[in-house]
């Protein structure tokens, strides 16, 4: 009734038999004619932790938006858990988003709800039984280390704490894929490190994590797989640990180029 219960059949394949993310010959052209992504090919396996780096306008955010179906590909395919997002009907999008958590630089919390209410909200909308909500909220708040601040409003929390609430909210529906768009862009180094550790723990629990950032220090310290974007092209796909900061902290040094794109100047 009223479109609330006719949930479309929509399950991601999380068996590991198909890649968590499978992008094939992807082009993205905005309505104004600007081509944001050129012929991107990419696979991310279940349980991986991947950094997406590149300057502003390199196409990182666009790529993430395609993964939670904020944007549709102009051509090519974007598959998440075996599901072709280009074929997704409008009324199926909400159900995709329950399996794909997203966090942002600006946290995007509801200012009039407490930390716990913000997290509970993501459960309420899925029709989770009321009695189950408090325990699950407490569980994820503990995971991000905010059990003692559950009753605070976002305005009474620091930036790092707000981002932890956002992470808790994105995790409460147990997503298979967690996308983070500049999650530490507004945070001090200590908070940044907290967030990265939490994201690492999320990965260890089996969730695939994709983090877009231009914080090279973080990328260098974490030593994960790194995808380098430049002007809409995926120019490097560097395996775990192949990417590190150079001595002066101002550029990028590639030890073991793993793609034929290594000639491209960064």
């Amino acid at each position: 009734m009223f479109g609330l219960f006719n949930r479309p059949e929509l399950e991601l394949d999380t068996s590991g038999n198909v890649p968590m993310v499978d992008i094939c010959e992807l082009d993205l052209v905005y309505e104004n004619g600007h081509q944001a992504l050129h012929q991107v090919n990419l696979q991310i396996q279940k349980g991986e932790f991947v950094f997406l780096v590149g300057t502003t306008g390199s196409g990182k955010s666009s790529l993430l938006k395609l993964l939670y179906r904020e944007l549709r590909p102009s051509s090519g395919n974007v598959l998440v858990g075996g599901l072709d997002l280009g074929d997704l009907a409008r009324n199926e999008v909400p159900y995709l988003r329950r399996s794909v958590g997203v966090i942002f630089q600006d946290f995007r919390l509801l200012g009039n709800k407490t930390a716990a209410e913000n997290v509970a909200y993501a459960l309420e909308i899925t029709g989770t039984a009321k009695r189950k909500i408090p325990s699950r909220v407490a569980q994820v708040l503990e995971l991000v280390g905010l059990s003692d601040k559950a009753k605070r409003l976002p305005s009474q929390l620091s930036g790092g704490e707000q981002q932890r609430v956002a992470i808790a909210r994105s995790l409460v529906n147990q997503p298979s894929l967690l996308l983070a768009d500049e999650p530490t862009g507004n945070l001090d180094p200590d908070s940044t490190w907290d967030i990265m550790q939490i994201l690492s723990r999320v990965q260890n629990a089996g969730t695939t994590v994709v983090v877009a950032t231009h914080n090279q220090q973080v990328v260098d310290l974490m030593r994960k797989r790194v995808l380098v974007m430049k002007r809409g092209h995926l120019v490097h796909d560097l395996a775990r640990g192949a990417y590190r900061l150079d001595g002066r902290g101002s550029g990028l040094h590639v030890d073991q180029p793993s793609t034929p794109f290594s000639a491209v100047e960064l």
Partner: peptide, 19 residues
């Protein structure tokens, strides 16, 4: 509108937002 954006982001069905 920010709130609506957030609702959509966390996967609220459209009618759930509309009602």
């Amino acid at each position: 509108r920010k709130e609506i954006e957030i609702m959509q982001m966390v996967g609220a069905a459209e009618w759930f937002i509309r009602w």
